[in-house]
């Protein structure tokens, strides 16, 4: 059952991102791990593309523990971890930039753009925000909405495809509206949706 969900999620992500520049994914908390796995499997299937994965929901260290095998080979995925330093527990890793706190939104934006700026050649660029709703735990709603607007505008200008996750239980109406407004496509995840 879990495999079917993950396969289904992967296909939906693949078809959505291939036609839409920005995709918003709204999911229940208990599907978060499945979605992350589907995402990483999709990223693994596109080694020629450059990925930036911004994690606010969980530390980079725990992602590596869970998906380390998939991440090791291609080196086309760079991480920005916004929580580990605030927790006081992180190990320096050349594949990950640790932003000091999830409140430093401008710094987050800067690091994202710097990674893409350093890319050489004509590479397809993808950005994952995991998750928009987690930012609400640390920041005011209006600030998160403004941040997301800035981010998606910059992504569109720089030809970056974005996938923004939002966990239902954490979401607020204002940010929900922004996610709907700023995304070309919205996917709503239910265990039985596929």
């Amino acid at each position: 059952m879990a495999t079917a969900i993950i396969d289904g999620l992967r296909e939906r992500i693949s078809s959505a991102i291939s036609v839409s520049q920005s995709v918003g994914i709204i999911l229940p908390g208990n599907n978060h791990s499945d979605l992350i796995q589907a995402l990483f499997e999709y990223m693994y299937s596109k080694p020629e593309a450059a990925w930036v994965y911004v994690t606010i929901a969980k530390p980079y260290g725990s992602i590596v523990k869970q998906f380390g095998d998939m991440l090791a080979d291609e080196g086309n995925i760079r991480f920005i971890d916004c929580v580990s330093r605030a927790l006081g527990r992180y190990e320096i890793d050349s594949n990950c930039i640790f932003v000091e706190s999830p409140v430093q939104l401008e710094k987050m934006l800067l690091e994202i753009m710097n990674i893409f700026k350093d890319l050489k050649g004509d590479v397809q660029k993808y950005l994952v925000i995991d998750s928009l709703s987690s930012l609400l735990l640390y920041n005011d709603v209006s600030l998160v909405a403004e941040f997301f607007t800035h981010l998606t505008n910059r992504a569109k200008l720089e030809d970056i495809h974005s996938i923004s996750l939002s966990i239902e239980e954490e979401m607020e109406d204002n940010v929900n509206k922004i996610l709907y407004l700023r995304s070309d496509k919205i996917l709503k995840v239910r265990e039985s949706f596929i």
């Binding site: 800067l110 710097n114 920041n139 005011d140 403004e146 800035h150």
Partner: peptide
């Protein structure tokens, strides 16, 4: 603007988010 100082890139500027706190 918001300003970042890092050993790698020195001084960098990015628009400051103005909403809320």
């Amino acid at each position: 603007s918001a300003m970042s100082i890092s050993s790698k890139n020195g001084i960098e500027l990015i628009p400051l988010l103005k909403s809320g706190g």
